[in-house]
Design a protein around this nucleic acid. Structure first.
Lengths: 231, 231
DNA sequence: CAGTATCCCTTATGATACTG
DNA sequence: CAGTATCATAAGGGATACTG
């Protein structure tokens, strides 16, 4: 735990636990589903492994996170206390999406975007048992342009190389547009209608794409008329 | 603003602003009502004035706080964006009171307790136009034992010396019991019934006391069966 | 009332490499 | 996969005194 505030106020007590850097993001990840160490790292690529390890120890000691070892694998889950932070995190997400404006250029990380798609894709809504979707991000440097999302009934994987499967659909767009769609800043039909997003594939598949994903709940939160300007 | 996370996730964006030490407590204070610099200091006695000044500047730049100068007085208010953090703070308070267990001995600050009483007392519910309530905290060192809450229609003041007004009611109790009542950990009738809290004054006044205050909303949140153990 | 000015010092954190 | 080990720097923050 971090430093104390010396106040009996429950907000102060809660923040003693939660206001350390990265802590809320770890909770966010584990609200998606239980995860292994390296899966958590993928969700927070800018966090060093030693710091992640330290935070997980702190959160386990505090009782927010349970560590389940099976063999030499370790799975991290939220405890009951941790899981009850969900409404707080949802409130924060709604506030953030409403007031924190457009995603800044600097936050655009294609790997994180692809990871969200993989986390929230629903295989049962897709046309085939095994689907490969190719993404071409037109606003990224060459090395970060091409990605593939491979989905089968057991889950989804992300590759930055052609996995060799037949491609069900190709999505060509600036990453910034895809992120804006994901966050709910812009609608899908607006993006395809204007040509910002180009889809290549059978028309049934093209029309189906935006419905394959469980969009985050905050996507429908109304935006502030005058969002905060990013520092 | 603190360091960035480099993620477009709205929780990450929100926490870049909000996860710095003391920030949420400042928002909490300003959710009570607009305040001057020194009034904020009273709500966060362990924060140095330079740090408070720095945080206020950050929050103003971020657009969460508005600074209103009149003459040489400065009032801090929440902006619309700041005010919309209320549900988040309420969620945090509910979570904190539910999971963070009893107030630790170290968090017991009589001055902060008296300040809460002054902030949330409702003069219209009290018997006289001017009321003085004396508090005797039996578990505090001599210097911190005796306090007076003086309430008139314009507001309430706290003294650590006898203000000279006629005393309407005397409350004699361990501070820890009063805090527990305030947080909703223990009921008032339980505390008076067991003799933990002793009231001296006319019976009408004694019975009225617990209703003079607007108890915090989180006081009614059910507690966890097994709260987290404080680090 | 509303802050500044210093000063010191711990600690937090990022980066990187390595292990079983 | 699941972490440790090491290191150096920067920043954060507490305490205190002082100003207009």
């Amino acid at each position: 735990m971090g430093a104390t505030y010396g106040q009996f106020c429950p907000i102060a007590k809660a923040m003693e636990l939660l206001d350390e850097r990265w802590t809320m993001l770890i909770v966010r990840e584990l609200l998606y589903h239980p995860m292994h160490f390296n899966e958590l790292r993928r969700g927070m690529p800018r966090m060093s492994p030693s710091l992640l390890s330290k935070r997980l120890t702190q959160l386990e000691r505090a009782g927010l996170v349970d560590r389940h070892a099976t063999g030499n694998e370790v799975e991290y889950r939220l405890s009951a206390a941790g899981a009850e932070l969900r409404p707080v995190l949802e409130g924060l997400a709604a506030w953030g999406v409403r007031w924190m404006g457009q995603a800044g250029q600097r936050e655009l990380d294609p790997k994180l975007m692809m990871r969200q798609l993989a986390l929230f894709v629903d295989p049962t809504r897709m046309p085939d048992r095994r689907n490969a979707i190719e993404f071409q991000f037109t606003d990224m440097p060459a090395k970060l342009c091409n990605w593939w999302l491979v989905v089968d009934p057991d889950g989804a994987d992300v590759c930055d190389f052609n996995p060799g499967h037949e491609v069900t659909l190709t999505v060509r767009a600036p990453l910034v547009a895809l992120v804006d769609w994901w966050l709910g800043n812009r609608g899908w039909s607006e993006l395809t209608g204007s040509g910002t997003v180009e889809l290549t594939g059978p028309s049934v598949v093209r029309r189906g794409f935006p419905h394959w994903f469980e969009l985050p709940a905050f996507a429908t939160v109304p935006r502030a008329d005058v969002p905060l300007t990013v520092g």
